[in-house]
Design a protein around this nucleic acid. Structure first.
Lengths: 188, 188
DNA sequence: GTCTATAACCCGATAGAC
DNA sequence: GTCTATCGGGTTATAGAC
């Protein structure tokens, strides 16, 4: 073969994640990405149909990295401490990698299949929640907690918190959620 | 004067809001905006230093529109019903105008003064909350509720909810928040 | 099948004439 | 305040070398 592959999807994605983490999605350019891999300006089109496809793949990567990051931090403990640990790890990731986190909830185009890595993260998350609430209300409780954590992350990124510290707000919401979650009968 | 004014800031912003609402921020272009006003491609630079300045002004517009939209819907009622009404109106706006809502929490650049319209909206919101919680915990409670509502809006925009309906999740979180907010002593 | 080369078309931004 | 002209850079599609 005359032109052996100089790269592959994984290598491209790794470089893209690195560039995304540093500069943000708005200024992520396919040309610069190709140049950093010493490729022609448009060589990436062999691996991704267009920019949207790359962003979609990046969103999956973000879910994987976040999932791994949470697993690395969370220690075995009671269900409530596990939830608090997950919340802390989730927000720590969003704070440390705002440009990556931005892609986690990228509004997906119409009629698009779900990201598998995000599904894995969701299953892990909902599993911990259901050990507190029981199966009956696991879905609502998990979604509500996710929504709250995501809101905290975004408000912090937008520098809404007057002193930059979301601590009291996080405590208020987390305690409210835990009280509601624990008050439901555990039938599982 | 050889070239009389053909436009002004308000006209530009109104047209920008309309184009933003239809096509989204990513595909909002200064050139197309100028063309829609029958102006030269760069005529807008007299009114906005650059694209970031226009987006910043647009974010203020979004806060104003959202504030007005909530005021239009919310009826006088008990504090709890007012909160439920605000939540409903907030999410209705995010659902109806996802492209506008996206700008509400646009991460602001470093060292930037707060948007005045957003501050007005915040005061209105926190005022209703404090009538439930008292002054002592108004800030944490308001921020926590805002974070939750924003999370719901974003999860819905990302089509995370399996059946597309965030109803049960919203009820779970809102009830948890109301229980926590009402349990605090009202000292004001 | 994979990379290179090129070109058409878009955007943001600046400079200078009117 | 608006215009024309232009620069640099980005995305995308096509044609062709290997």
């Amino acid at each position: 073969m005359a032109y052996p592959s100089k790269t592959d999807r994984e290598t491209i994605l790794a470089a893209a994640v690195e560039q995304l983490d540093r500069q943000g999605l708005r200024s992520l350019s396919l040309r610069a990405l190709a140049a950093s891999l010493e490729l022609a300006p448009n060589a990436l089109y062999r691996y991704f149909a267009d920019r949207a496809a790359l962003e979609e793949a990046l969103a999956g990567e973000v879910s994987r990295i976040l999932h791994a990051s949470i697993l690395r931090i969370v220690r075995k403990a009671g269900p409530e401490q596990a939830i608090r640990g997950i919340a802390r790890a989730y927000l720590a990731f969003a704070r440390k990698h705002p440009n990556l986190y931005e892609l986690l909830l990228l509004p997906c185009a119409s009629g698009q299949e779900k990201s598998a890595p995000r599904e894995d993260l969701w299953i892990f998350f909902a599993g911990h929640v259901s050990s507190l609430t029981g199966q009956d209300h696991a879905d609502e409780a998990s979604m509500a907690l996710w929504a709250f954590l995501h809101g905290i992350a975004q408000l912090e990124a937008a520098q809404i918190f007057s002193d930059g510290k979301p601590g009291p707000t996080l405590d208020f919401g987390l305690n409210a959620w835990l009280a509601a979650a624990s008050s439901h009968p555990q039938k599982n």
